[in-house]
Amino acid sequence: MTNRIEFKNVSKCFGEVEALQGVNFHLGQNEVVGLLGDNGAGKSTLIKILTGYYQPTGGEIYFNGDPVEDLTVPRARELGVETVYQERALAELQTLWRNIFMGRELTTSFGFMNVKKMQAETHSLMTESMGFTSTAVTPNSAIQTFSGGEKQGVAIVRALYFDADIIILDEPTMGLSLKETRKLLNFVRGIKAAGKSAVFIDHNIFNVFSVADRVVVLDRGTVAGEFMTSEISLDDLMDKMYRIAETGSFEGEVDEGFSEGK
C-alpha cells in the first residue's frame, strides 16, 4: 500500500540554522506515528512543511505516492490534512465561531459568510465535543476569555470538525489536565479506529508510546531512528531516548555518574 505521506531527503534552513537535514519520513495508511525529540530537534518544522506552511529548502514530498510541489496550507487541506499546531493558531480577540472557521469560513455566494450556520455549528460543537456547559460561553464569546485548556480544546475540535483523514497534533497535551489528556489520547485512538492516520508529537514519552504504532526520533534536524511500538518495550525506548540526549547516538556510552559541566 502506498504511504499517505512520504518525505524524501527533506531539508529546511532558516538562514544559518539547519532545522532539518535530509529527513526521510513517512506516514502509512491508518497509521499513528509518534514524533519524539528534544526542544529544537525540528519536530514542528517537519510538521509545518507537511501542512504547507513552510516550503522545504530541499527534497521531495509525496502524497499518496504522487509528488507534490509548492505545497500550500489550502492544498494540504485538500489532500486531507488537518493540524493542531503547537502555538494553537488562534486569534484571541475574535469570537469562538470565527476561530473555528478561521481561513475557511462557510459562505453563501460571492464570498459572503453564512454567519448563522457557523454559529449553529459552533454551538453544537461546544455542547457535543468541547464539553462546555457554562452558559457564559457562547459561540460569540471572544477566545481571550477562555482558559488554557479550553483554548487547546478549541484548536483540537477545529481540526476534527473538518473530517480530515490525516490529523497532525503538535504537543496537543500542553496545558491540559490529566483528565483532558486522557480524553485526547482516546481521541487519537479513535482516529486510528476510524481508519485514518495521525502524526502525534508529545514531550511525554508515555503518551506517545500508548497511542503510536511507530515512533520516529528526531535529533538536531536528522532522524536518529525509528521503532515499532509493538517491537520495543517502553523501558528500552526510554533508555534509547536517554542515550540520544546524552551522546547523540542510540549506541553511545552513557556515563551513569553525575558529570560536571556537561
Binding site: K48, V73, E87, A89, Q94, R98, E105, F112, M113, V115
Partner: peptide, 22 residues
C-alpha cells in the same frame, strides 16, 4: 459579512495564526 472582512480582523489580531490556517 464577507470572508475578506473576517480575514482582515484575523490578520490584525494574530497574523501568524491566520497564516497557519491558510
Amino acid at each position: 459579512r464577507h470572508r475578506f472582512g473576517a480575514h482582515i480582523y484575523l490578520i490584525g489580531d494574530n497574523e501568524n495564526s491566520a497564516n497557519l490556517m491558510g
